[in-house]
Simulated scan of single mutants.
Amino acid sequence: MIINFITAKLSPIARKLFIVHATCWILFITYELTFVYYHVGALERPYIYIAFYSINLALFYLHIRLLNFAFTEPKSSYIVGFLLFVVIVVLYLVIKGIADNFLGNPQPARYDSHIFIRAFLPRNLARAFYFILMATFYWAAKHIAHFRRQALEAEKRQLIIEKEKAELETQLTKSRNAYLQQQINPHMLFNALNFVYNSTQKYSDDAANCIWLLSEIMRFSLEEAGPDGKIKLDREVEQIENLIAINRYRFKEPLYLKLEMKGDFSRYKIIPLILLTLTENLFKHGNLTEITSPAELKLTTNETGQLTFYSRNLKKSKNARPRQRKALGLQNIRLRMDSFYKGNYKLEINEPGEFYELTLTLKL
Rank of each mutant, 00 (worst) to 15 (best):
P322A: 03
R157G: 01
L278F: 07
A135K: 09
E253R: 10
S311Y: 01
L83K: 14
K202F: 11
T30R: 08
S175W: 04
L33W: 00
I95N: 02
I6W: 10
V90S: 10
L347F: 07
R157N: 10
D338L: 11
F190P: 00
I132Q: 11
I132P: 03
D205F: 08
D234L: 14
W139C: 06
V237T: 08
A166R: 12
N209F: 00
E348G: 04
N185R: 09
G226I: 00
I6K: 06
G343D: 09
A109R: 15
G286T: 07
F195V: 03
F18S: 12
L214G: 05
E162P: 01
Q324K: 13
Y111S: 08
I270G: 10
I291P: 07
V86R: 00
L299A: 00
Y268C: 12
I98N: 09
G226K: 14
M1Y: 05
K230Q: 15
G353V: 02
Q306M: 11
L255T: 00
V87W: 10
E224C: 02
Y37L: 08
N101E: 07
A135M: 08
L328G: 03
R45T: 01
I349A: 02
Y203W: 02
I95W: 03
E260W: 05
K315M: 04
I13W: 07
A207D: 05
E260K: 06
I55A: 08
V87H: 07
F71G: 03
W25M: 14
N332H: 14
R148Q: 10
V80G: 05
T170Y: 08
T359R: 11
N247G: 02
F283P: 11
P352L: 09
T359V: 09
K269E: 15
F52E: 02
E253N: 11
F85N: 12
D112F: 03
P272A: 06
K252R: 06
V36K: 12
L297T: 04
L91G: 15
L297S: 02
I161H: 05
Y310Q: 00
K346Q: 14
L84I: 07
N101C: 01
T279E: 07
T289D: 09
V90D: 08
S175Q: 10
I29A: 10
K163I: 04
E296S: 13
Y356D: 00
I161W: 08
F102Q: 01
Q306K: 14
F120K: 00
A245L: 04
R235L: 09
Y47W: 11
I6A: 03
G305W: 12
F195C: 00
I48M: 04
M134W: 14
L275T: 13
L84G: 01
I95C: 12
T308P: 07
V89Y: 09
